[in-house]
Design a protein around this nucleic acid. Structure first.
Length: 582
RNA sequence: GCCUCCUUAGUUCAAUGGCAGAACAGUGCUUUUGUAAAGCACAUAUGCGGGUUCGAUUCCUGCAGGAGGCUCCA
């Protein structure tokens, strides 16, 4: 049966009912906006009382009451003068009216029965009785700046989720519960992968031995891909003179976000490096370069420091200290396409190996805010066009996003989605016609003339630290064998097999397999449970039978019986699985 | 940084303006096991500072840390 209302109309109507409910309790409330969003809606309010989570059920009840009254939604056109009169007590609406009038937009008003009216472009159910009163839920209250500008007053935003049926709502809420179980901050603790300490500071993770295996796994895979792309790894210092960042342009743009270090011998402060590109230009600049030397490709895994605002930190996904699997290519213009193309392929290979879902974004300059970027119009036009053509040529689907470019050039960003549906930028490729000139980088061309190279900034998975957070959620902590912190648990059934268990461990350790022997005096069941809760890929169980025949009994993660095997055969299978990163 | 909320043992959670309780983890002892939690015992906590109070883990306040958002993300 065809449904007369699409879900957006329902959500939008609920936003109005929410506003009506708030207004009834707090008549002096100033209304902001109330749009639909993914899975639901929100409405922004400015009122002197604090709305709290406890108020939400009351508001829901009020909304349900309105629904039962079978109120109709009716639209009418308004002249600017009439609109101003109608919303004379609603300053935010007046601001919108003024703006819309200037843009010569038709103003419309929507009434919900006789209880509520809102300046609104429409998109509602015809009658509140069409909304399923059991298929929505107000979820949380949050602060939000009017029109998303932190200079504006901060309003209280009430979020809700809504679906056509109760079942869909329940399914959604269940999914959220499941997602919480995969939260990398929770799993990081449970699986003992990384820790924070108040003494060390917020946003600065410490990786445990187990976590460091995962982190190194990510870094080493990027190293391998880098080698295939012709990159050579360099090492650069963590603090640098301000001058370096002044030339690169980062000082002007990000001074507030850089951490300073004072030297007793220098009149000027040093800065913790927030990125590697300026240092790499100095390695390039250290000697004369020929067109034959290009492309020159440097990779770097150095830890970077950014003074992020405290409220913006979150788990491993937003940090003050983090590394990047960074790389910079210095090349001729005629080499750009091939280089970017190669990197795209490496990124695709990497993400396929990790089995990560992603989409690509072509990040362009905001044409209305040119002052935020380095370089002139012609260069921007050229570099943006190079990237766009390349994506089209390679038939790569992508979204274009104005205002998302780096200040020195356009980017192709790879966006991953985490367990809670949040989108994270991971890989990036950035085309930079600006920094090489600012650092006076040069090469001698075929004809003996001096030319400026182009710089390509790129990261394969972005930050190994952040990416680890995404991977933890992606795998729900059950890492593939090659990344698993502990790859094999060996469990001797009784004390009599301890010695044999350790000899199996030694055989595997020699092959660089990460093994733990679970030989505590706990019961067999208990030790198997431990191996399972630690999400160890393979558990090897050895009893009298196995010790006698020099075999191992293998249990795969999640109670998969993989049978008995000779040790040498098992080693071979593991080696294959690890090498192929299956 | 801003708004709202939060901080009790290693972890997950109780309780209280008047001696802070449990489970799991830990330690010791017993048990030596055939595929997801053996038994007993022991030890362990109110984030830090200031205030109100006879007395504060509880109330107020500052700081630190955390959560959800907003803003920002080279």
């Amino acid at each position: 049966m065809e449904h007369p209302n699409n879900i957006d109309n329902i959500r939008h109507s609920l936003a109005h009912l929410l506003a009506a409910a708030v207004l009834k309790k707090h008549p002096k409330t100033k209304l902001g906006v109330g749009p639909t969003i993914e899975n639901g809606f929100y409405y922004d309010f400015l009122l002197s009382e604090n709305l709290s989570t406890e108020d939400l059920p009351k508001l829901e009840k009020e909304m349900r009451g309105l629904m039962h009254r079978k109120l109709g939604f009716q639209g009418e056109k308004l002249t600017p003068a009439k609109a101003k009169a109608t919303f004379k007590d609603q300053p935010f609406k007046l601001e919108l009216i003024k703006e819309f009038s200037k843009e010569k937009k038709q103003l419309t008003l929507y009434r919900t029965g006789d209880v509520f009216m809102d300046l609104c472009k429409g998109g509602h159910v015809e009658n509140t009785s069409e909304i399923n009163a059991d298929a929505f839920k107000l979820t949380h209250v949050a602060g939000a700046y009017w029109r998303g500008d932190e200079k504006n007053p901060q309003m209280q935003r009430v979020y809700g989720v809504a679906f056509e049926t109760k079942e869909e709502l329940e399914k959604y809420l269940l999914q959220q519960e499941e997602a919480k179980k995969r939260d990398h901050r929770k799993l990081g603790k449970e699986l003992d992968l990384f820790v924070f300490s108040d003494l060390v500071g917020s946003g600065m993770p410490m990786f445990t031995p187990k976590g460091n295996h995962v982190r190194n796994g990510i870094i080493n895979f990027s190293r391998e891909l880098n080698a295939g792309l012709g990159f050579e790894e360099v090492h650069t210092p963590n603090i640098n003179k301000a001058e370096l960042f002044k030339i690169s342009g980062h000082y002007d743009k990000y001074k507030e976000d850089m951490l300073t270090v004072r030297s007793q011998y220098s009149t000027e402060d040093f800065f913790m490096k927030p990125m590697n590109c300026p240092q790499h230009t100095q390695i390039y600049a250290s000697r004369p370069r020929s067109y034959r030397d290009l492309p020159i490709r440097y990779s770097d895994f150095a830890v970077l420091y950014r003074d992020e605002r405290p409220g913006e930190l979150s788990g491993l996904t937003r940090l003050r200290s983090f590394a990047q699997d960074d790389g910079h290519i210095f090349c001729r213009e005629d080499q750009i396409e091939q280089e970017i193309s190669n990197i795209l392929e490496a990124i695709q290979k990497a993400l396929k190996t990790y089995r990560i879902d992603y989409w690509m974004r072509l990040s362009l300059r905001d044409p209305k805010k040119k002052e935020k970027y380095l370089g002139d119009d012609a260069v921007w036009k050229q570099s943006q066009e190079i990237m766009r053509k390349l994506l089209i040529h390679k038939k790569i689907q992508h979204k274009e996003a104005e205002g998302e470019a780096a200040f020195y050039g356009p980017k192709i960003d790879i966006m991953a989605v985490d367990a809670l549906g949040r989108v994270w930028q991971i890989s990036t490729i950035q085309l930079d016609f600006n920094q090489p000139g600012r650092f006076k980088l040069a090469y001698t061309d075929k004809d003996g003339s001096e030319k400026t190279p182009v710089m390509i900034h790129r990261a394969l998975v972005g930050s190994p630290d952040r990416f680890m957070g995404i991977l933890i959620e992606h795998y729900g902590g059950a890492f593939p064998l090659w990344l698993a912190p502990v790859q094999i648990a060996i469990i001797p059934i009784s004390e009599n097999q301890k010695e044999y268990a350790w000899s199996v461990k030694n055989a595997l350790s020699t092959e660089n397999v990460r093994v733990e022997v679970y030989d505590s005096n706990d019961t067999l069941g208990k030790r198997i449970r431990e191996a399972e809760t630690q999400k160890i890929p393979y558990t090897v169980i050895v009893g009298e039978k196995e010790a006698g025949s020099k075999t191992v009994s293998i249990r795969g993660r999640g109670n998969k019986n993989l049978g008995e095997m000779e040790i040498a055969q098992f080693v071979l299978q593991l080696r294959n699985e690890i090498e192929k990163r299956l």
